[in-house]
Amino acid sequence: MSNKLRLCEAASVKDGEPVAAFAEGMPALAVYNVDGEIFVTDNLCTHGNAMLTDGYQDGDIIECPFHGGSFDIKTGAAKAFPCQVAIVSYPVEIDDGWVCITKPEGAA
């Protein structure tokens, strides 16, 4: 059985307007379009209790709405105070126009 998870249609994700996605057994996810390329990270900020898709995308940086901390969308690395812990990012595959990630080993 495939561990591939379909999240949303790639065309629905516009640059600067990240989209919240949900998949069974996975934490809340965020899908981004950076200059035409699609990326996926966890959605819940590693610092405060806020969804990054409610935040502000500036190129390849996503700024959390809550405290203004930020992450590198492409790598998940924490970029600005008060975020210190990297956000999980997932390798993306576009399959038949859908944004897909592979369910990590051990995920419920």
Binding site: D54, P65, F66, G68, G69, F81
Partner: peptide, 18 residues
Amino acid sequence: AYDLKGNLIGVPFRRGLK
């Protein structure tokens, strides 16, 4: 939030919410 020198480094909802 301010750093230990007193510089402002964080303002919640600075760009609002959605």
